[in-house]
């Protein structure tokens, strides 16, 4: 069984983001820490569990500049057999739907039985990648998957997906299929020392994913949300803040 895991590198959630003066770009400080998207770790772990149980081959792929290779390296340290970076060339970062098209064009013909990814990315938060990828590939998809059972001899996967806070639906999908896994489906592993050593010797392959000419003009304007605060920020030492808070509790009759 061949599994592809689509991963994204994102700036750490605690990064202090800014916005360019004209509002067209989000500014990420030069010293920002980039990580593997937390939601994609679950997809990777699910693939590695299938590797452990059924000897699946696990490949990781990501779109972006050479910077994203640290996320791909992390995937190999966790246990992926190979990692691929799709280089979109210069210009604006492709939007989610465009990324799905680029991955589909690359993955078509590579005979993956299963393609896994996280339910969303921490930065763009669109939740659109997996269904768009499936539509481009002409295969089935399911999102918010909490349980998956691959029955390769029957050519299908049984998946349980969340449909609200208290229910799941069970669906079957013909293979190949694209699944966006929900957080909490497993507990992602930490890289083992032997995998870290093995990954050091591995090469991340690069493929061009050029988008042709005429990139779309920017269509987004950004602004920082923190500018619109209404509440009161308590100042001082931890003790002073705690005292002020308890005063408010008593004044407001909360306690």
């Amino acid at each position: 069984m061949n599994i592809l895991v689509c991963i994204k590198q994102v700036p750490d959630a605690e990064t202090v983001f800014g916005v360019s003066e004209d509002g067209t770009r989000v500014l990420i400080p030069g010293n920002a820490v980039y990580r593997l998207n937390r939601f994609d770790e679950y997809a990777l772990e699910e693939a590695l569990l299938l590797k452990d149980r059924a000897g699946a081959r696990v490949h990781a792929v990501s779109i972006g500049s050479p910077r994203v290779e640290s996320a791909l390296r992390r995937a190999m340290e966790m246990g992926a057999h190979a990692a691929y970076r799709l280089d979109p060339g210069s210009g604006e970062e492709p939007q989610t739907i465009e990324k799905a098209r680029l991955v589909a064009a690359w993955a078509a013909g590579r005979e993956y039985d299963l393609i896994l990814t996280g339910i969303m990315s921490e930065d763009s938060m669109s939740c659109m990648f997996a269904p768009a990828l499936a539509e481009h590939l002409g295969v089935s998809s399911a999102t918010a998957v909490m349980v998956l059972d691959v029955r390769q001899e029957e050519g299908m996967v049984v998946a349980e997906r969340e449909i609200d806070s208290s229910r799941r639906e069970v669906v079957t999908l013909a293979l190949p299929a694209v699944l966006a896994v929900q957080s909490g489906i497993n507990r992602p592993r930490y890289p083992s020392l032997s995998n870290v050593m093995r990954a050091k010797g591995q090469v991340i392959e690069t493929a061009s994913a050029a988008r042709g000419t005429g990139h779309a003009a920017p269509i987004s304007r950004f602004r920082e949300v923190s500018a619109r605060r209404e509440g009161r920020i308590l100042k001082g030492s931890p003790g002073e803040k705690a005292a002020a808070l308890c005063d408010y509790f008593h004044e407001a009759g909360v306690l």
Binding site: P11, F222, S226
Partner: peptide, 13 residues
């Protein structure tokens, strides 16, 4: 729409 974990608001036309 909200992006970057809710820290940045995006207006997309």
């Amino acid at each position: 729409r909200n992006t970057y974990n809710g820290k940045i608001q995006e207006q997309r036309s």
